[in-house]
Simulated assay, not measured.
Amino acid sequence: MSMWRDVGLVAVGGAIGTALRAGLTLAIGDGIGSTLVPLLNIVGAFAIGILLGWRSRMPASSGAQRVQLFLGTGVLGGFTTYSALAVEAAEPGLLWWGIGSVVLGTGAAWGGLVLGRSGRTQR
């Protein structure tokens, strides 16, 4: 039963994250064009870094694991979309944008991880 509950958490979280991304794309996508997908990925990478850093300070528990599955794998996994980035980067002249987005996303994830790890460790 536990495995299916975890799969359900990821599925529901993924649906929420995908809906958030789609809503932002519809609301502001035309205004900033091809900048939106890399921007969402960088913000999502930063948030995932924070989550993983926070998790590293928490005691191991099934509750904390479920939060990570729901928020990290589900919501933030659905919110970020490197497949859309790959399609945009395949456009002539935009390969640099895809590479830059991966580099910036990695930096954002590292920054989020450092931020998430700061503070007191709870035991």
Rank of each mutant, 00 (worst) to 15 (best):
S2Q: 12
R5W: 08
V7L: 08
L9C: 08
A11S: 11
A11Q: 12
A15C: 06
G17N: 06
A22W: 11
L24E: 01
L26M: 15
A27D: 11
I28W: 01
G29I: 08
G31A: 14
S34T: 15
T35E: 04
L39H: 05
V43Y: 07
F46S: 03
A47Y: 04
I48N: 13
I50N: 13
I50Q: 14
I50F: 08
L51D: 11
G53Y: 10
R55C: 15
R57I: 07
M58D: 12
P59H: 08
A60Q: 15
S61C: 04
S61I: 02
G63H: 15
Q65R: 12
Q65H: 13
F70M: 06
G74H: 08
V75C: 13
T80E: 09
L85A: 13
L85W: 09
E88D: 13
E91V: 10
G93R: 05
L95V: 11
L95N: 01
W96Q: 10
G98V: 02
G98S: 05
G100P: 07
S101T: 12
V103R: 04
V103W: 01
L104I: 10
T106N: 09
A108R: 05
A109Q: 09
G112D: 04
G112Y: 04
G112E: 06
L115A: 13
R117P: 00
S118R: 08
T121W: 00
